[in-house]
Design a protein around this nucleic acid. Sequence first.
DNA 1: CTGAAAGCGCTTACAG
DNA 2: CTGAAAGCGCTTACAG
Lengths: 337, 337
Amino acid sequence: MAPTIKDIAEKAGVSISTVSIVLNNKKQVSRETKERVESIIREMNYRPLHSARKLATQTTGNIGYIIWEGYFSEVEMFYSQIFWGMEYAARINDYYILLTTVKEKFNPQEDLPRFLKNKDVDGVILVGKVPGTLIDYLDLQQIPFVLIDYNIFQKKYNSIQMDNYNGAYTAVEHLILNGRKNIAFVGGSLFHPSIKDRYRGYKDALEKNNVNVAKIAEYSYCKNIETSRAVGESGALYLIKEHPEIDAIFSCTDHTAIGVIEGLQKANKKVPEDVSVIGFDDIPLAIYHKPKLSTLRVPKMEVGKEAFKLLHEIINNPGMAPQSRVLGVDLVIRESS
Amino acid sequence: MAPTIKDIAEKAGVSISTVSIVLNNKKQVSRETKERVESIIREMNYRPLHSARKLATQTTGNIGYIIWEGYFSEVEMFYSQIFWGMEYAARINDYYILLTTVKEKFNPQEDLPRFLKNKDVDGVILVGKVPGTLIDYLDLQQIPFVLIDYNIFQKKYNSIQMDNYNGAYTAVEHLILNGRKNIAFVGGSLFHPSIKDRYRGYKDALEKNNVNVAKIAEYSYCKNIETSRAVGESGALYLIKEHPEIDAIFSCTDHTAIGVIEGLQKANKKVPEDVSVIGFDDIPLAIYHKPKLSTLRVPKMEVGKEAFKLLHEIINNPGMAPQSRVLGVDLVIRESS
DNA sequence: CTGAAAGCGCTTACAG
DNA sequence: CTGAAAGCGCTTACAG
């Protein structure tokens, strides 16, 4: 059997309270007993039993990671990289991460993730466009949470954001500097705050540089809610048909961009010769694609780490005012622009 | 505060033992008290506290999922789909899954996954070519485990396998039926049992059909340990240079196949007109690729589910003789063949 | 069929 | 600085 705190106490000739104190290095313990206890712990390879500890402290030691299902209908790397960043930070603080997804159409009664229903987490990190009713539930139940790449208009929740606005601005400015004159936008729903910011960046870059200004509305394809390949493809097809002069398309995500390129090819346009394309996210597919996709790299690991850190702070300071931290993105130019 | 078993007992006018018994529906309880207790549980939305339950039963309620790092150096979907299958089965049995990776070069002293070091799992599922020293550790510590897509020569461990041999055989036979005469193989290390079986399938299909037999050795490119794109590319380049008559290549994985196609293109061979290519795994990239990749579909969700089920059985029947279950794979023909 | 009691392995006031 | 004791919320023989 694995040794318990009692075994350690006996062998060290102290009480279990003392062992517990050195374990959690709280309060003062004489150096010598501390060292003695520690050496015995090491010697017997003792680890406190998780469940016992959690029972006593009334915590779970787990955090939940909830992924919007839309994020892996396509190629699901985005959330995955974020996970590894979180895991890295969680490990240091001795938390385990429980993973699950939620559907678009979400019923708080039935679809509540198991670890929430059973109260098996101390907090939750959510990535993407998660259901509003879920967020309301967390809020109501006072379960600490942080949003990644999402936010609700006019609400102040803890969140990690990418610098969508500046990323888009930089990308479009790069297109301008490369001599592109007729720069279009293909995007999903402008209801998604991230997409909205990317669109603002696109628009502002054109306006500040006085390029293309009169045409912005016509060159903007934002009909759909999705940001899928299919949307990209039909967007490109539509735009080229209506406005054959278009020579660059900024796409709201990489998946969209890949669809855009396919549409362009169907319309017999060469990328990047005839039309430059830039995406957003830097999904792994970006470098596998032909041509390799120019895009804005989101520091996914960092996002995960930062999300955990923020959550951890919230858990330990329940009164904390909500904050959102924004991480910069990098323009990476490859073959499509 | 969340209600405890005591609250339920009081409100139902029974002892906590009785509540516990209906909770775990063991032993006999009179129908009426059972129903009364259950309705109160529902009414108060009571859930037993995980840590308390686990403390009392001396279990953890967790299983570990260990991924060989090589499996997501490329595009990491394979293990991810398996995860969702496992999660599905785990949910039904009220287990949580803890995820981590192990490096190729693994030192049991230092690199032991945290949940193993702390004994926070009741069992472990490992996918891919995990370190032998890790397996030895699990064996020694008597921690129940099941291997996915891997096995150690001459050892009898619990495992889930794909039908690598028949998959490869079918693919190569398909190539033959399509009139291909000079069918090559590009693979990774034949030390990996799965790759080895795929190679056997390739060889046997040719021999049984009396095609290409004298050339098998020359047409086999198995120099490297990896099954990466890079390997595929250099393999294709090498084979075409030495044997320009080659008109089909069976690749040991999809990643390899993608590399093979790139190599072929560099050598000015058209796929599939000049050379047919078939991969193995059916990674998501397969349908994004141009041309779309023909391959053998591994039922990843099923693999995950089955792995969990097997592990669950082992956990509950410690004496069980090791077994390996093999799942069939389906040939899916797309554009590359 | 039901209850009282011990026990799982920790943490944490409270004394001293 | 250290220890005795209570408590966290369950399960499980054991009586009855």
